[in-house]
Simulated scan of single mutants.
Amino acid sequence: MGKRDVDDDDDDDGGKRRKASGGFSDHAPPDDGQSAEIQLDQMLAGGAGLAGLGMGMPGMGMPGMGMPGMGMPTPGLSVPGASAAPELDPLKPATTPMDFSKLGANMPSQEFPVPRDMVEYLMTPEHRQILLEETGCDVDWAPDESKVQLKGSAEQIRKAQRLLQRVLMHCNWGRSEAKVRRLLKPKIIESAVLRLSPMNTLPAGQKTLSQTQPVISIGKDKKANDIVIPAAIVSRQHCVLELDIDRGAIYVIDCSTNGTFLNGLRLPPKTTGKVLVSHGDELLLQDPANDQEFGYVVNIQELNVREQTKLQAPRRLLSTEESATMGRDFQ
């Protein structure tokens, strides 16, 4: 007996025969003898869709034709009422949302104490932003406690501490918001007119400071100084004001025996350091306890100024010869 292409199932009503080939029970073969594949192509082209193929019921998939079961849509076919699923790029790795809420929570922090009389000049929104830009360290002011809260990496905290130390050191000889801003974010002065206006009968002085002529000197020696003061209390070379080209600012160096005073406070000796000078500072050539007007008011007119720059730290150590002749900035 040959292999049968169809199954004969007798029903209860009289043994009527049903087609059981490929799930096309509702469609009779075409008269012209077309194959099932051609029939399927025609039905799809005519918009019959899955419903016309008897495939609308769950579990009626067609594995032999690459059609998944369980009601899953077949690629290339549209199912009425079904929303289009987003296409996934097989070359793109799957991603998950990132949580940044705890970013920096475990970073190191450090408190930096500030003198109470510096709080109003230092703790401003602008200075906080400058510190963040210059060091990368997050800064929180605590004015009631006279403290600065620093948060960041160890290197960022170190840079912020160094910058704050520089501000506090130079502000020992006078403080203002403008001075703090200059110390936090220096601007490079390439040339400036320096005028020394006497507060009593001392001779006035003026000089344009630049890279070629960066120094103005005060003392009793006529050959060694720009401003000569023949007084017993004045040293041969009493003090020097210089335009530091590298830092782009004017500093004062005490070279005297009896002392030079900036805004009422004695300057350190030249071997220890030099101090930033600002417009309007008072420069006295003797202790103000003895005479509060034996000196000058400093006037600075900036001529050429370059863009602001960051300080590079750590600064190199000065040689013995440089320390004896130049003095160094407090950083």
Rank of each mutant, 00 (worst) to 15 (best):
G280F: 06
C255I: 00
W141R: 04
P68V: 04
T309K: 11
F294L: 03
V193S: 12
T260F: 00
N290F: 09
G259L: 09
I300T: 12
L303Y: 02
L122S: 06
G205E: 05
P97Q: 01
E120F: 08
T320W: 06
L183H: 10
N225F: 05
G64R: 05
S83F: 09
Q161H: 03
R195T: 10
R175W: 07
G59A: 03
L317S: 14
G264E: 01
R182D: 15
A51W: 09
D10K: 07
P75Y: 03
M72H: 07
R18F: 11
Q211E: 13
G15L: 05
G59I: 04
L276A: 07
K187F: 02
E133C: 05
Q165C: 08
I300C: 10
D221N: 15
L318Q: 15
R18S: 01
M98D: 05
L122F: 08
G33F: 04
L150I: 08
D31P: 07
K102I: 02
Q129N: 10
M169D: 12
G104Y: 11
A84C: 08
D9A: 09
G64W: 06
P63Y: 00
A36Y: 02
G104V: 04
F261D: 03
M70Q: 12
P115Q: 05
K310A: 15
S235P: 04
E155V: 08
R247D: 15
L265N: 13
N225W: 03
H279G: 09
S235E: 06
L88Y: 07
Q42V: 07
E134G: 08
K179P: 00
G54W: 06
C171K: 03
P203F: 12
Q156W: 01
V234Y: 04
M118P: 02
G205I: 04
Q161V: 15
G259N: 03
H170P: 04
L53T: 00
M65N: 04
V252H: 02
G33C: 05
K270V: 11
S78F: 14
A231E: 05
Y296N: 05
D7C: 01
D32V: 01
H238T: 14
E37T: 07
Q237P: 00
Q149S: 09
R247V: 08
S197R: 15
P68S: 03
P86F: 06
G46E: 15
